[in-house]
Design a protein around this nucleic acid. Structure first.
Lengths: 111, 111
DNA sequence: CAGGATCCGTTCGGATACTG
DNA sequence: CAGTATCCGAACGGATCCTG
């Protein structure tokens, strides 16, 4: 579908910005404050460095997070939400509270 | 990652319920009222019947939409949001309004 | 410690053709 | 009209190894 899906729709834009299952999870973690790379890895069990880097870089490009490097040995890099990224707090909260009200259908074979 | 990602987190649950780029778009369309199958197809340029059926069926299982069949020729089937699905209105709106405030970075090669 | 490079598997979705 | 069946391609993510 490339990206031709209803561009006038904010929801579609949101999905482009936070695509992939890990995106929102990472943001959610950053809502707790600045994190270092490995801090995020520990907070997100199962995520690979590849994926984490990928999402983080994308967030940078969109101005959702900032990357701060401290020139020291060993290296230290911190990721922090920008005010724009902070704005996601209410959105993620809305998503979360809604989802928790959905009963569990138990079986979910999907497709 | 299967599904072992922070089950206690509502956001993760949300992503499981509305997975895939089309999911939220379909719900958004249904917020305008009941739709027939082909009505949704027309409203969502580019979606394939395969995908649409897949998402719709998933929504049914989760109690987000209802499927009503009218025994007539030609067949007539209507999809409608349940009260649970209606609850997504505020969530999608929050997503949309946030996303529209994000400036366009122009280049977005992703990964 | 932070992350780039590769290779590969899974999933989601598109295309097409065919039914009740 | 409203799907279903099949095949296939693209994207996202995991695993592993290596580097500044």
């Amino acid at each position: 579908m490339t990206d031709s899906r209803l561009p006038e729709c904010g929801v579609a834009r949101f999905l482009t910005l936070l695509n992939g299952p890990w995106a929102t999870l990472i943001v959610r973690e950053l809502l707790h404050g600045p994190h270092r790379f490995n801090q995020l890895r520990e907070a997100l069990p199962g995520i690979s460095p590849h994926t984490l880097t990928s999402r983080l870089r994308q967030f940078e490009r969109h101005g959702i997070v900032t990357r701060t490097t401290y020139a020291q040995i060993p290296p230290r890099v911190e990721y922090e939400l920008t005010p724009l990224g902070e704005g996601l707090r209410d959105v993620l909260e809305a998503m979360g509270t809604w989802a928790m009200d959905v009963p569990d259908p138990a079986a979910d074979v999907t497709v």
